[in-house]
Amino acid sequence: MESMQQQQHKKHIKHQQTRPPSFMMSMSVRARAVMNHFRQFPVLLRIRSNRFTSYKQFIIYLRQIDRHARLLINRSKFRFVGTGVVTAALGGRAFSFWSSSEPEEKMAEDNVTSPEDVAVKEADELYHNHEIHKLYKYLGEFKDSENPLLLWRLARASRDVAQHSHTDPETSKRLTYEALEYSKRALELDDANFACHKWYAICISDVGDYEGSKKKILNAFKIQEHFKKAIELNPKDATSYHLLGLWCFTFADLPWYQKKAAAVIFTTPPESSFEEALSYFNQAEEVEPNFYSKNLLMLGKTYIKLNNLKMALLYLTKARDYPAKTEEDLKVREETELLLPKLTTKKSN
């Protein structure tokens, strides 16, 4: 007859044989670090309910992605990002307003992408949902990254927070210069990416607001050059046309004293016309109709300058009625509500 001790030992052996294998015994050091991070942030581990029918399948899958765990090493320490290595490529399509024309990256064969690919998708989702403060905080984890796709998005996020109405002036200035630094690094890493050129030009212009008209005029040709390069690299990006139109409008509408200052700085100062500005705003609408409330506003303001009140009224009305999803949309609506009564009065006279 077996002793109580022998019976307990047999039960223990049977339990060992039937229970799921231990994470810590079945996976490499890298994978252990991943799973430790899962334990700290379980909410980040998102698995489609119909993907795994058993715990065993889940373990097998984790072993398959063990070789990808090394991708989580960032500057000699493990870092887990985005929605998780397991489900990096399982989410819905990511959106980004400024890069709506960019082709989607192909998924890896085993549905696993690098952490930085995951971060780009997560950032685009936050941007699409207009969660600018969350986005800035999230991308701040990648400020030392060498990935231009993350850096130009970080530049954009920094700028968005800098221009938010609740951001104090000192913080706004700091973030504006941060955005310039991130955009510059992104461009240095990839000068064949249209968004890197576009955001570098935007950030140079923003910094000019702190450094005076002379500095802004000095940078004018550089800004124009990068907007044109962005269009050359991606002629399907509506915002690049809009921004070049804005550049043209600004110099067409430059006060006389600033034109004189520009003539002192340059032999041939930057100049443009409202007709040229109109052509770029129209091209933006051709590429992507009604993509941006401010483009509709600028079309209306440009038609006012060209004394075409009928078309001005049309586009200002469109801008006013544009669904307000961002703080900028609300500012556009406020401006149109100031302009429309004056325009209506002027037209009736």
Rank of each mutant, 00 (worst) to 15 (best):
M4G: 04
Q5W: 04
Q8S: 09
H9W: 11
K11M: 14
Q16H: 05
Q17L: 11
Q17K: 10
Q17W: 05
R19K: 13
M25S: 12
M27Q: 04
V29R: 03
A31T: 06
H37T: 10
H37F: 02
F38Q: 08
F41C: 10
P42G: 01
V43Y: 05
L44W: 11
S49C: 08
N50A: 12
R51F: 15
Y55L: 05
I59F: 10
I60N: 15
I60M: 13
L62H: 13
R63M: 14
R63P: 03
I73W: 11
K77Y: 05
G82S: 11
G82H: 04
G82D: 08
T83P: 13
T87F: 13
A88W: 07
G92N: 11
G92Q: 10
W98P: 00
S101Q: 09
E102R: 07
E102F: 08
M107P: 11
D110M: 09
T113H: 06
S114G: 04
D117A: 05
A119M: 03
A119N: 01
A123Y: 04
D124V: 06
D124K: 14
Y127G: 08
N129Y: 05
H130F: 12
I132K: 08
Y138F: 13
G140K: 13
L149M: 08
L149Q: 09
L154M: 04
A155P: 04
R159Y: 09
H164G: 13
S165F: 06
P169K: 06
R174T: 09
R174M: 10
L175N: 00
E178H: 15
L180Q: 12
E181I: 10
S183E: 06
K184I: 11
A186K: 03
D191Y: 03
D191P: 04
D191A: 02
C196Y: 00
I202A: 03
I204Q: 14
K214V: 14
K216Y: 13
F221S: 07
Q224E: 12
A230H: 01
E232V: 00
D237S: 12
D237E: 15
D237F: 06
A238E: 02
G245W: 00
L246S: 12
D253Q: 06
L254K: 00
W256V: 12
W256C: 06
K259D: 00
A261F: 09
T268I: 15
P270I: 10
A277H: 01
Y280Q: 00
F281Y: 12
F281C: 02
N282T: 13
Q283K: 10
A284L: 04
S293D: 09
K294P: 15
N295H: 00
L296S: 04
T302H: 02
K305P: 01
L306H: 06
N307L: 09
L309F: 04
L316K: 00
P323R: 02
P323C: 07
T326R: 10
E327W: 07
D329I: 11
D329C: 03
L330N: 07
E334A: 15
E334W: 07
L340Y: 02
P341T: 01
T345W: 03
K346E: 09
K347L: 14
K347A: 12
